[in-house]
Simulated assay, not measured.
Amino acid sequence: MSEGTMQLRAQRDQRDKREQRERKASRLTRAAVCAAAVPAVLVVAGCSSDSGSGDGQDKAAAEKSAASQSASPSPTVRAAAYAKLPEPCSVLSKKSLEDLVPKGDSGKEGASNDTASRVSCSWDSLDDNGVKGSQFRWLSVSMLRFDSDATRGAGDELAHAYYTKQVGDAQSAEGAKGLKTAPVSGTGDEASVVRYDLKKKEGTFKQQTVVARVENVVVTVDYNGAGLAGEKTPDGDDLVKDAQKAAKEAVAAVAKANGGGADSSPSASEPASEKPSASASKSG
């Protein structure tokens, strides 16, 4: 074998070895890439599996919650104690009217589109003493009844809120002088009297407002008096006593109209779902 031939064979062997090394390195690189790709595929597959399982669990939980809600009973509240109101112009006795409005005519009933929930009556009196002047009196009794309602609450709670509002309105009367507020005992579940003076060109008017709540009914008594044309101003303490007496009679009349005495009422512990009357809902 010539020297040239031997040299060519040696070069070919070196080239073959180099190509073998390159092919081996290429195979190792591809294996490493594939190995790195396998965990990513597994992770994706695992996430897809978990997501599907979570969706199933969420759907099952939603269906269970919906079934539970549909099976739950509707909310209930205490039944309203009183279902009706008395005739407003008959709540006070003849004797009381003679004391409060001595020269008054028969009462004037106020307009109402729902007499089971809202009624009122008013009287006025002018005792003319000729040149000595005259004594003026004005009396009003109004009653508002609240039904129990599952969305708004129990009737007595709604009445309490309205009672509080009525007292606040009386205390904020425009032009009131010497305003005083005091609790009234023995009249319903809660009661207050608001008194003040109003000075007008005709004279000084003594105003008394008694607000009382009995169960789910609010009674408001407005009573004022004045000495006109030279007649002396009436005594405020006497007028307050008369107004309180009228409020107590009106509260007793509410219980009587519902088949009970002054201190009796139906049980307020049983549930009810009746809707409030239209007029009481608007007022509340």
Rank of each mutant, 00 (worst) to 15 (best):
E3C: 13
M6Q: 07
M6N: 10
M6F: 14
R9F: 11
Q11M: 09
R18G: 15
R18D: 11
E19D: 06
E22T: 07
R23P: 06
R23G: 08
K24T: 15
L28Y: 12
C34M: 13
A35Q: 09
A36W: 13
P39T: 02
P39Y: 13
P39W: 12
V41W: 00
V41R: 00
V41Q: 00
V43M: 03
A45L: 10
G46D: 11
G46L: 12
S53N: 12
G56V: 04
D58Q: 13
A61L: 12
K64S: 05
K64V: 04
S68W: 13
Q69S: 08
S70E: 13
A71C: 00
A71Y: 02
S72F: 09
S72V: 06
A80D: 09
A81T: 04
A81G: 09
K84D: 09
E87K: 13
S90T: 04
L92H: 05
S93F: 04
K94R: 12
K94N: 13
K94T: 02
L100P: 08
P102E: 03
K103C: 14
G107M: 01
K108S: 11
K108N: 08
G110K: 10
N113L: 09
T115M: 05
A116N: 15
A116F: 07
S117M: 01
R118E: 06
S120Y: 07
S122K: 05
W123K: 03
W123M: 10
D124I: 11
S134R: 04
R137T: 10
W138D: 14
M143A: 06
R145E: 02
R145K: 07
S148C: 01
S148D: 03
D149N: 05
D149M: 04
A150S: 15
G153I: 14
G153P: 05
A154S: 02
D156N: 06
D156W: 14
E157D: 02
A159W: 00
Y163H: 04
T164A: 15
Q166N: 10
V167G: 00
D169M: 11
A170G: 06
Q171A: 14
S172C: 11
A173R: 07
K177E: 15
G178Q: 03
T181P: 13
A182R: 02
P183N: 05
P183C: 09
S185H: 09
T187K: 09
T187M: 14
D189T: 03
E190V: 02
S192E: 10
L198Q: 08
K199I: 13
K199S: 05
K199M: 13
K200A: 06
K201T: 15
Q208M: 12
V210M: 00
V214L: 08
V214H: 07
V214C: 08
V217W: 06
V221I: 09
D222E: 10
D222N: 15
G225P: 10
L228C: 01
L228D: 05
G230A: 05
E231I: 07
K232P: 01
D235W: 07
D235K: 03
L239M: 11
V240R: 01
D242P: 08
Q244G: 12
K248T: 05
A250D: 03
A250S: 01
A250V: 00
V254Y: 14
A255R: 04
A255K: 05
K256F: 07
G260H: 03
G261A: 00
D263T: 02
P266F: 02
P266H: 00
P266Q: 01
P271V: 06
E274N: 00
P276D: 02
S279E: 06
K282T: 15
S283G: 05
G284M: 12
